[in-house]
Design a binder for these strands. Structure first.
Lengths: 164, 164
DNA sequence: TATTGTTATACTCTATAACTATA
DNA sequence: TATAGTTATAGAGTATAACAATA
């Protein structure tokens, strides 16, 4: 939206005596208003904060939830496969799994086919816990729906389906 | 979308002899498919990477661009006001401004009204540079449009307008 | 007392590189 | 030689707390 940027003239806000108006509503964003990335980033921050809050009691963050969900749906995957599928660095997944394994939610099993790799599985406890996490995540999703509206949420999922 | 989650059955992927299929396309996401946050996060990563790449020659990242744009549109703002408006921690803005000031794009001017605060302005060089950054950011925005489509991008901006 | 800018610390996340053990 | 998992490091980004100067 370059047109918007070009049309917006700076509101003078001199430091030499003019009234300071610093309310968020009063401060223009200029070109940022036309940038999808800015809106998406702000929304993503809101949505993650709601997720973290809604799953606060069970201490599960979005990335942990995504790892558990993919392992639950695809038992036996290697770490590389999970990392690639979710766009996580394999080095980072090591620490994520260390934490989840310490909490007895996930287990690494040495593969007999390829002894370099680990087959990932949920523990029985992990499967039970994940069911609970999914209920809480669904509650979070209803918060999203309340925030932006049912129709808008569905449009959003449709528009961004290609990025999953 | 709990229904989706409940309906999806895990595809067995035993580590004891079954063929390993680890292509990203073949690995189900289960409940993640119904979560707006997951799609939004993946899209946000794509969009920031494209922004960073498109503005790579001028070495400007999304947060730096947002700070410069807001200062350009509202000269004389305090650091607190910029931080609040953009949702950046004031402690973090200090470092961002240190960097932008070293690059002679921004200057801090001691306020005469409130000697605790700094009025922020673009330098002449900063204003010229920002005009160039905006042209590159518009190019990035056209990449977004190419990626998701003109209509979808406009719908996205409309849906998320409340988060800016 | 409260606020602005600053410094400092810790933790998350991203991006690399290098090492080991296997293939 | 290439790959899977691991370890380590550095840079963003987020979240706090505390301090000096000023209100």
């Amino acid at each position: 939206m370059t047109a918007t940027a070009a049309r917006t003239s700076p509101r003078k806000r001199a430091s030499n005596g003019a009234a300071r108006r610093t309310d968020a509503d009063e401060i223009g964003l200029d070109a940022l208003v036309g940038h999808a990335g800015y809106a998406v980033r702000r929304f993503q921050i809101w949505i993650f904060q709601d997720f973290i809050k809604t799953l606060g009691n069970v201490d599960i963050r979005p990335t942990q939830y995504s790892v558990l969900t993919v392992i639950g749906a695809n038992p036996g995957l290697s770490q590389m496969a999970v990392a690639k599928r979710l766009g996580i660095e394999r080095a980072r997944l090591v620490h994520l799994l260390d934490s989840l394994e310490q909490r007895k939610l996930v287990k690494r099993i040495k593969s007999k086919e390829d002894r370099r790799s680990h087959a990932l599985h949920l523990t029985a406890q992990g499967a039970t816990a994940l069911a609970k996490f999914k209920r809480l995540a669904a509650e979070h999703e209803r918060n999203v729906e309340t925030k932006i509206g049912k129709e808008n949420r569905e449009q959003l999922l449709r528009i961004l389906a290609g990025f999953t």
